[in-house]
Amino acid sequence: MEEHRDDLASKTGMWLFLFTEMLLFGGLFVVYSVYRYINADAFHLAAQELSVPVGTINTIILLISSATIAMSVTAIRKNNKKLSLLLLGFTILLGLVFLGNKYFEWGHHIKENIYPGSPVLASRGQGDVLFYGLYYFMTGLHALHIIIGLVFIGFIARLIIKDRIVSDNYVLLENSGLYWHLVDLIWIFLFPLFYLIT
């Protein structure tokens, strides 16, 4: 059986998959809206404890990484394999820095005994419990997506090295980019909802 290649089909498939990811987080946004509505003041106060500078830096890191992976597609299409790989490497590096920041941020909160199930958190009232519950769950799920994205991009980089992704067959690279942009897109909403709405 000769493989018939349909790039538009695989791109459509990727977009449809991204829709499921959007809905996955969409469910969490439903939960967030309801609990924020019920506990408006507590969410307001709890959000002030998150570090805006760290959040801002992480946002900018993700935005830059999005731009680098998008440019990597341009590079491969201009037949510039080296630059494409370099940009992908840069994307992976930025993703790791993001995770590192997140690690220290979580560590900081956990050191202050703010984590789900902690008695200190419970004593601060239900609004705080829900805010931090959502914070850990949503940023955690997002971080998990970052990790999946990094593995995906690493796999794509391997294909570029092996010349399986070239200037006229680059849809997989594009798809990994789409995934990475979606992860960025979700962060664009998580950032104001947790760090800025004070």
Partner: peptide, 26 residues
Amino acid sequence: TVFIALLIAAVKSTFVLRIFMHLKFE
């Protein structure tokens, strides 16, 4: 504040969707 923050997030995501995810060209 909420409104403005979400509005800016919406504008940002429009850029990401249209240019980075090249919806504009699809």
